[in-house]
Amino acid sequence: MPDMIALKAFRYRGKLLQPDEPFEALTSGHARVHRALGNAHDAPAKAKAKPRAAKPQDDPSAASGEYLRRDMRAED
């Protein structure tokens, strides 16, 4: 998986990449297409794509994908 650096802002694999942001192409074919379109160029050997830190969630139960059920019984 080739490491690349974005030349302009574009969406790739669900993320909006900004110029000069390093990322990792999924396949060598994807890297070839980005080079051909002028979206990105190969990263130097020392620059590695860093995963973005996840934003902290306020409610941990909502982050797990569980449906929060409410008690729908009538009050007396």
Rank of each mutant, 00 (worst) to 15 (best):
Y12P: 01
A62L: 13
G65L: 05
Q57D: 09
M4G: 07
L68A: 11
A49Y: 05
D3P: 03
R11D: 07
A9S: 15
Y67L: 12
R52S: 14
K46W: 06
L37G: 02
G14D: 14
F10C: 07
K15S: 07
A63Y: 08
A47Q: 07
P56W: 03
M1V: 02
P22N: 11
D3C: 11
H34F: 12
F23Q: 06
L26G: 02
R35T: 04
Q57E: 11
M72K: 14
R70S: 07
K15C: 00
K15E: 01
R52Y: 05
Q57W: 06
L7A: 06
K50R: 10
R69N: 08
A9Q: 15
R70T: 00
Y67K: 15
E24F: 00
E75Y: 04
Y67S: 12
A31P: 04
K46R: 08
A49L: 02
E24N: 07
A43Y: 03
R11Y: 03
S61T: 13
E24H: 04
Q57K: 13
L16K: 10
L17Y: 14
Y12M: 02
G29N: 12
P44I: 02
R73Q: 09
R73C: 00
E21D: 06
E21Q: 15
E66M: 08
A47Y: 03
F10Q: 06
T27Y: 10
L68K: 13
D71R: 03
R69F: 11
M1N: 05
A6P: 09
F10E: 04
S61K: 14
R32N: 00
D76K: 14
D76L: 12
H30K: 06
M72Y: 10
L26Y: 07
E21W: 09
D71S: 03
D76E: 10
L68N: 06
P2W: 05
P2F: 08
A45L: 10
L7P: 01
P2Y: 07
G29P: 02
D58G: 07
T27D: 11
R52H: 14
P51W: 02
A53P: 11
P51R: 10
Y67T: 15
D58R: 13
L68R: 13
H34S: 01
K15L: 08
M4V: 06
I5P: 04
A49F: 02
S28P: 06
R52L: 13
I5Y: 04
E24S: 13
P56T: 12
D59M: 03
P56C: 01
R32H: 00
Y67D: 11
L17D: 01
D71M: 01
E21H: 11
N39Y: 10
E24M: 12
D3N: 15
P56Q: 12
P56N: 07
A36T: 04
P22W: 07
M72P: 03
G14M: 11
Q57L: 06
A62D: 03
A49P: 02
L16G: 04
K15G: 00
L17R: 12
S64W: 03
P19N: 08
